[in-house]
Design a protein around this nucleic acid. Structure first.
Length: 486
DNA sequence: GGTGTCTGCCCC
DNA sequence: ATTCTGC
DNA sequence: GCAGAATGGGCAGACACC
């Protein structure tokens, strides 16, 4: 298949707003693909490549844009072969060699093809369709219910394999990781109870998500994105080897504990992953049988109790609230709330799991803003946030673009341009006059920012037009917050 | 060897 | 990671 | 309700360059 056919479909999809129309366009292209092409076409049109990572990013791609071919001749198999070579290149001189291979590929591509490859390899396809839509397209092309294709994909871990195989034949298998179930956010335990009724509440541990597969003495550990991280977490492996179970797939979180049993900050956990220990809150497979369709309450009964995070089952808001307070006091992130009857909804956020975290807020001053990309083109988007320095001036603590509606984006662009003092590249610096209320999940040590502190997951709540910069929170307040564990 | 830059279906 | 938006 | 888009900070590992 010519790359140009695929690129043409991609632009048509991008130019189409309706989901059903996108699906039809994609399904039509899939029908034209040969058996050895279909997996590649699916990968490229859902924004991924077969190699998943090839050690090439924005900087390398930008240098590869030079000569432009006029006739489209590249096939998708040729593209895949080159990407494979790039992925396999390692060692001294490899960056140069990767660059050469990429430039050579680009020189055989038309302008549209180069643009597509650039977006594909930077992970910014922006055609309004990725894997979720592609699942529907595969279902349409094969004349199967989308639910069956989705289920097979979750078990195969790869949509390409589902496009040609017998969808009924896919089942849970050891050492083939399944996409982890995700959680929605709830503001408090009351919201979670209202959604779920009686629920299991568990400490939410601030570490890294792990999925552990065990068969006898053989143990492998996978990350949230299904990377094999077995070698990085030896304590987890040792701990699982000690479990008196045969075949099992467990879902949980790995964290590092200090001598007194309190959790380390996330940053420290990342530095000391080698000593991270596992806590398991779910089980997906046991001795030959999939447990995905069992209710949560039945699955948890099969968990090794010694490795579970603290948990209670209750319908009582007061009990849940004090459990939340206990979690925070113990230095944990908050709680998870899970419906007792719920199945394991692999890869989905729509299921019966909620996360409840403590949020902090600060009133900070906008120091600058950056021009947005894509649908935010022409608008000032990413805000530079500063706390007031009592000795004069402001100390930058991070940036955010979250929490801004289109309307607010428009408003802030006007406001900020009125306050512009200078530009450097895509950054517009402004007089520090606007105060914004910012919510965030915690503070991290920062090697980059002048105060040595950075906000974690900052987002805009609202502009405080009732406040002046001299009413903004000070860096001392922020330091105090950090000291108390925020 | 020391330092800087880029990359990561990164981890969150 | 969080949030907003179109479907 | 789902899926996609737009973007954050920090860290380790790999390589380039001096």
């Amino acid at each position: 298949m010519l790359l140009s056919s695929l690129v043409s479909t991609s632009s048509q999809v991008a130019a189409t707003s309706g989901r059903l129309a996108k699906i039809t366009l994609l399904a039509d292209l899939l029908k034209q693909a040969g058996p050895d092409e279909i997996a590649l076409a699916i990968a490229y049109l859902s924004g991924t490549i077969r190699q998943s990572k090839i050690g090439v990013g924005w900087a390398t791609l930008n240098k590869a844009k030079s000569y432009v071919a006029t006739t489209p001749r590249l096939t998708i198999q040729e593209v895949d072969a080159t990407l494979e070579k790039i992925a396999m290149t390692a060692g001294k001189g490899s960056a140069t060699e990767k660059q050469r291979l990429l430039s050579d590929l680009f020189s055989r591509a038309t302008a549209e093809e180069q643009d597509f490859l650039f977006r594909l390899l930077t992970g910014e396809l922006r055609q309004g369709a990725l894997e979720g839509i592609m699942v529907e397209a595969v279902a349409k092309a094969r004349d199967l219910p989308a639910s069956e294709v989705r289920r097979a994909t979750m078990l195969a871990g790869n949509l390409g394999a589902v496009a040609s195989g017998d969808v009924a034949s896919f089942k849970v298998e050891l050492f083939r990781p399944i996409k982890p179930m995700l959680a929605k956010t709830a503001t408090d335990v009351d919201e979670a109870l209202a959604e779920l009724g009686p629920a299991s509440f568990e400490y939410k541990l601030d570490g890294i998500r792990i999925q552990v597969h065990k068969r006898g003495a053989e143990v492998r550990v996978y990350s949230r994105t299904l990377n094999d991280i077995t070698g990085e977490v030896p304590q987890v492996v040792a701990s699982v080897k000690g479990l008196k179970v045969g075949e099992v797939i467990l879902d949980g979180e790995a964290i590092v504990l200090s001598a007194d049993g309190r959790p380390l900050r996330f940053q420290e956990t990342m530095k000391g992953l080698g000593s991270a220990v596992p806590f398991f809150f779910d089980i997906l497979y046991s001795d030959g049988a999939s447990l995905l369709d069992q209710p949560y309450s039945a699955r948890t009964k099969l968990l090794p109790e010694a490795h579970r995070p603290p948990h209670i089952v209750t319908a009582d808001a007061n009990a849940a609230r004090s459990f939340f307070d206990a979690a925070i006091a113990a230095g944990q992130e908050g709680l998870m709330a899970k419906g007792l009857e719920s199945k394991y909804d692999a890869g989905r956020r729509g299921g019966a799991w909620f996360k409840i975290k403590k949020a902090n807020t600060l009133d900070l001053v906008v120091l600058a803003a950056e021009w947005g990309h894509g649908r935010r083109h022409g608008r000032l988007s990413n805000l530079h946030l500063g706390a007031r320095d009592p000795n004069g001036g402001f100390v930058m603590l991070g940036k955010t673009f979250k929490g801004l509606s289109d309307e607010l984006l428009e408003w802030q662009t006007q406001q900020l341009l009125e306050k512009e003092v200078k530009r450097e590249g895509h950054i517009v610096y402004v007089r520090p006059e606007l105060v914004v209320e910012i919510a965030f999940n915690g503070l991290q040590d920062s090697p980059h920012y002048p105060g040595g502190l950075a906000l974690r997951f900052a987002r805009v709540i609202r502009y405080r037009d009732d406040k002046k910069p001299e009413d903004a929170d000070t860096i001392e307040t922020v330091r105090k917050l950090h000291g108390t564990g925020a």
